[in-house]
Design a protein around this nucleic acid. Structure first.
Lengths: 168, 168
DNA sequence: TATTGTTATACTCTATAACTATA
DNA sequence: TATAGTTATAGAGTATAACAATA
């Protein structure tokens, strides 16, 4: 239980943190807004999944996820195949075009962060990641869209279909 | 210079961090959206200031700040007095009603954070605050709305007109 | 001519609710 | 009846550009 003063300061940081996100968003290509980029990133990282799972990872309502997915599907970056096990569901898959788009996004993101974090150490970045992850958990424990905690160690063990080795 | 993998993870955290902010926004009273709350918080904390300074602290374009300020002024929470030294400028001042509103906001924020951060130590909260502050600085160094760095130690020495003692 | 602030416009993101199809 | 997903609608936040008043 931290002191009142710390709460104020944390609230202030959260409030002004949007500027960082907006700076990140500025480097995105014109036809790929942040929502689409997030969809592609998660599919690249965790592999095929259903709408509901994607919505959970995005931490938004499924209606919002549906919107972003529609945008990316319209551009041919992902495919929505029917789930043979449950005809209500759709399985999302990154297409070849989607992978290309991701390469581009990765380059842009890396360039930006390499510039902005040029004087950060690995350790500091790791600390920040760990604390942000923990904060998200602390907030997410209460009101989650669905169940939460089904994906294996989301923050600890990322990077599935990175280069070679198709683990699934 | 951190590794590529860390960049990806940090970008992921930033992307999903919006959920935390939305959780914070949910506790706001109906007639006081996040933008208005931010205006009141900054005026309470740093005292009277001009539009341009407020926009800088909010880390948004002045047109956006003008909008939020208009909303709070319409409700009588702040006053916009002409600056005698520069008739183009307006000095923003928290009214008595604005102070009342801030009391309410403080209670709500504190309650929420006390709940969410119940198992956080002071030290952890401080670490997170410090790293978020540093990240904002790293990003803000490049493209700032105006000059930056005019306010004395924004993150280090907050809390001006807290309870008693009117330092100005 | 440059700067402070306001307003008009457009875009992104979000949630709620109503709806379809399937379980 | 309950769940997966889509769509319509509305609200908040933001930036750009055009504008007014003043420096």
């Amino acid at each position: 239980m931290a002191a009142q003063r710390h709460y104020d300061e944390l609230a202030r940081q959260l409030s002004a943190f949007g500027a960082v996100k907006r700076d990140m968003a500025r480097i995105l290509p014109p036809d790929c807004p942040g929502g689409s980029a997030a969809v592609l990133t998660l599919l690249k990282r965790y592999g095929d999944m259903r709408m509901s799972k994607l919505a959970e990872l995005l931490a938004v309502d499924m209606s919002v996820a549906s919107r972003h997915v529609a945008h990316t599907a319209d551009r041919g970056w992902i495919e929505r195949r029917p789930d043979p096990a449950d005809k209500r569901s759709r399985i999302l898959t990154l297409t070849a075009e989607g992978h290309e788009r991701m390469e581009d996004l990765n380059v842009r993101t890396t360039e930006l962060l390499a510039d902005r974090l040029s004087d950060w150490s690995d350790d500091e970045v790791n600390q920040l990641i760990a604390l942000m992850t923990r904060l998200r958990d602390s907030f997410g424990d209460c009101r989650t869209t669905t169940s939460r905690g089904q994906f294996p160690a989301a923050a600890q063990a990322p990077a599935p279909t990175q280069t070679t080795r198709t683990p699934a």
